[in-house]
Design a protein around this nucleic acid. Structure first.
Lengths: 160, 160
DNA sequence: TATTGTTATACTCTATAACTATA
DNA sequence: TATAGTTATAGAGTATAACAATA
């Protein structure tokens, strides 16, 4: 049994935002895919494919900033995706230092089948919160990280 | 300049709790000690010393669960603290499998001087949120991770 | 048999800096 | 000079499993 008989004194840490965020993030990740492993691609890779699908031609560095992945690491991730034929890159003529990302047909196919299960699993992460609480939590997190608020509350994916 | 001219479409990810938590945790950590590095001990080590100070004799596994650190990793962290004379451990007679942790005098001294600066830096993490928003965010995070609510919010005048 | 902690290994991610090529 | 990306390396943290000692 994994109950928690030991009530420990958390001191200042119970009021520390950074600490609470770390625990919450760890718990969220544990609840994601509870048990089931991702075989074809990591969650990070799926996120990248999702964003490249929505933002075709996005520059690698922009993606890295959005996902808080270091540039050096992003290079390796993109190379791994390229080696598996999931994405391609091109050098734009207007700035030949940049790298633009595109999905291959295989990448399109993979993310189209894999992403719905990510969404389904994600929707089960907020167990323990009421629906309005989850909405508030997400709104505050978006503000905290400087992400623009959602214009359309909660229905389908929005288009431009 | 590090402005963000590129507004990228986040799709489903803007509404995913796990994703928002990951970004928030990364941002929070970056804002912590903005620039200044911790020299004597890592943030994890300081957290452990703080909790051992508040919960003398706490078992290693209980601490690991509270901090979401894997047991195998906790072993190495505690060994490192022991080697630096910051904490000690004992084997309780009532369960000789367990390991109880205690601060040495040096550990007491170190955490007593280092912890206030952790708290001071932590209090600057929530930039961008109003004070009531930060309070709400922390309350929701505590609920999300199953941590008991704070009985006395932060000032006087609290009731249940 | 289950639990606590240890050891070992592999992997992911971070941190850093030097490097190139372009701007 | 500054920026975008690459390469390389060191270190922290995670994931996993086998193991010993104890319950």
């Amino acid at each position: 049994m994994v109950n928690n008989p030991e009530q420990i004194e958390m001191g200042d840490m119970a009021g520390m935002l950074g600490f609470l965020l770390r625990l919450a993030q760890t718990d969220a990740y544990e609840r994601l895919f509870d048990g089931e492993a991702l075989t074809d691609a990591s969650l990070t890779e799926l996120s990248i494919l999702h964003l490249v699908q929505l933002n075709p031609g996005i520059r690698q560095g922009v993606l890295a900033k959005a996902l808080r992945i270091k540039r050096a690491h992003m290079t390796k991730i993109v190379q791994a995706l390229d080696e598996r034929d999931l994405c391609r890159f091109t050098i734009p003529a207007e700035d030949r230092r940049a790298v633009q990302l595109w999905l291959t047909d295989a990448g399109q196919a993979m993310i189209s089948t894999a992403w719905p299960s990510v969404c389904a699993s994600e929707s089960r992460v907020a167990t323990g919160l009421t629906a309005p609480e989850a909405v508030t939590l997400k709104r505050l997190l978006r503000k905290f990280i400087g992400m623009p608020p959602l214009l359309q509350p909660l229905t389908e994916g929005s288009r431009r």
